[in-house]
Design a binder for these strands. Structure first.
Lengths: 142, 142
DNA sequence: TTAATTTGTTTAAGTGCCTTAATTAATAAT
DNA sequence: ATTATTAATTAAGGCACTTAAACAAATTAA
């Protein structure tokens, strides 16, 4: 078999990722959170507490926006602000237990849906997907 | 090698997809469009013209929201409303040439970034990614 | 050690996304 | 014909998001 041009692989992979995430986010409605809050909370729960600035870069919005978004989420007990003793300019944003629970439940639901969709695949095909996921993570490392 | 539990594959795949899209969307800023418009326009360009209701389901927002979003995008000549002769209740939303151009340029930039990241991989690894993308698309089919 | 600069967050004011509820219009059903 | 259903829009209001400005803490320089 002649090797696939690298641009074609990139294109297919990009499209597949979009379609995959479009599908699994169907279950997000159950969380009661909107897209902005879900994405921010997801980052905080799975990448760990972050400063306002770091969150802003991750979400690709302004620090001002994050500051206000956190106000609302703090008001709903999803996150809390914690002072950083090392650098008192920054404020660390941490998920609360409630925020963590909601996010983990949402992730479980997403993965559950995806699991049911993958159930028709053979072992060798699952192995291909597993290796692909690993390759992607490795490739994205800076 | 003992086969990976299917839930683990689903979880790894889900996470990889998130990380991949988080990375490539870095180039979206160049479009001048915000997330809501980019996502809607992406659907219209790559899945074809859609009704307000279909777009609302795809974007997981209300028809009222789409109606207003389309107002703004129409105002910026990104999309246009077209009457459906078969059912005059519905309005088809179509990307304009400008909208199509912007979207395709954005996609090209994303895929270009991803291509550069995949350039360090071997042919066999690219083949694994290619097959994985194909498996995902096939698995997601309803 | 002050002073100036840089870095991180917040506040204020304004635009646009997004919601629910109500309205209008077209199709389908009886 | 009337009624019910489906599709889109409008109106009013809340929240996401922006830029510009203000503020506070840390770093650098004199």
């Amino acid at each position: 078999m002649t090797p696939a041009p690298i641009e074609d692989v990139a294109d297919k992979l990009h499209t597949a990722a979009i379609h995959l995430l479009r599908r699994v986010r169907d279950v997000d409605a159950a969380t009661g959170l909107n897209a902005a809050r879900l994405s921010a909370l997801s980052y905080l729960v799975f990448a760990g507490p972050a400063t306002v600035g770091e969150l802003a870069r991750a979400e690709q919005v302004t620090p001002a926006n994050i500051s206000q978004l956190i106000n609302g989420m703090q008001n709903d007990s999803l996150v809390e602000r914690v002072e950083d003793p090392n650098d008192r300019r920054v404020t660390l944003v941490c998920p609360t237990k409630k925020g963590e629970r909601i996010m983990r439940e949402a992730r479980t639901a997403r993965v559950g849906l995806l699991t049911s969709m993958l159930s028709k695949l053979q072992g060798s095909e699952l192995e291909t997907l597993s290796q692909a996921a690993q390759l992607i993570e490795h490739t994205l490392r800076p």
